[in-house]
Design a protein around this nucleic acid. Sequence first.
DNA 1: GGTTGAATTGAACGCTCGTTCAGTAGAAAG
DNA 2: CTTTCTACTGAACGAGCGTTCAATTCAACC
Lengths: 195, 195
Amino acid sequence: MARKAGSHAEITGPKVREEALRLFAQYGYAAVSMRQIAKHVGLQAGALYTYTPDKQALLFDLMRDHMQKVLSGLEDLPEGGPVEQLEWMVRYHISYNLSHKDGVFINYMELRNLSEENHLEISRLRGVYEDAVEAILIAGQERGLFQIPDTRLATMAVIAMLNGVNTWYRESGRLSLERVEQIHWNMVRRAVTGS
Amino acid sequence: MARKAGSHAEITGPKVREEALRLFAQYGYAAVSMRQIAKHVGLQAGALYTYTPDKQALLFDLMRDHMQKVLSGLEDLPEGGPVEQLEWMVRYHISYNLSHKDGVFINYMELRNLSEENHLEISRLRGVYEDAVEAILIAGQERGLFQIPDTRLATMAVIAMLNGVNTWYRESGRLSLERVEQIHWNMVRRAVTGS
DNA sequence: GGTTGAATTGAACGCTCGTTCAGTAGAAAG
DNA sequence: CTTTCTACTGAACGAGCGTTCAATTCAACC
């Protein structure tokens, strides 16, 4: 070896992914060219292929990385009752999503631009997340804490409601993050319990 | 005039919009070419320009038409109390969206592919819809029927929850439309009222 | 049945796309 | 100083893009 392995690659590689994430989120995967990404990184288009086999793999890596980080955050789910766990889940979902807007965005918008194989893997990871939420609802239902006619539907409804925050929340807006979390938790709690 | 005005256009025009809507929803605006649309209609690409000034106008027309139909459906909002109106709203939103999946989809996915001017108009129409929902929540709040800390946030949360249905509902699935509407209405009702 | 004109073709315009690859630069190792 | 090898350039490939337009087709009217 004549040079520290990846002496530049250690900087350029992450930068490529950063810029790709930002551009994919802003303009959409199909509308962003490899040349645009390269320009933002400060490279010629050909150099990108040092860091990704192709454009599709770049998208997939970004989406998979996002889902894996989301899922690894679930390891902090506190022990305790389903009510406390659900509150933690609501707050985690909102705060994580708001601090990773681009990742959330491409994971919802770019599913259809994945190859069949890649689509399956991202859907699988999303399913793991949904299952984690449903597990809490099922536990609460079994203990008589929740009144939910269908736990799967309730899971999807809760996640959908929480996802909505990303479409309108602005840091400079009327409501603080804490208040947004608090109000959503109140709505979710009331929706899954008698009151 | 030597031919009934638009003797073919009466058939071809709507077909162009139908196929464009379907393809935009399936693959995304940026990923669909005018040649693809033309092929599905049974034309050469150039002929599309008899029916639309350009690709952007085609997308905008589809999105505006969708929003206008959604809004005109609101004229059937029944008179009566806020609770009854909110239930109608929940059922209308779910059933309309499920019967116009492609239109809903492009209105959420393709906003960023609109020119600034067109984006403003679609956002305005969406705002009118949101205001209609919020008006019901405000009315209920004023009469002491609802307990909502922030009606705008509650509006966005309710709409987001209902939008979620389109991502997972299948006609051949486990739950009937009526049951999905019923459960969502229960959740919304409990979320905005004490119980 | 010839005339009219809307509907459509098919070729062309300049441009951008994702990807490949021979060649080069330049920092680290010997 | 020479060697080594990673990082990168810059040109090229074939393909497809949105859009334009002269020429053509053909159903409806007089």
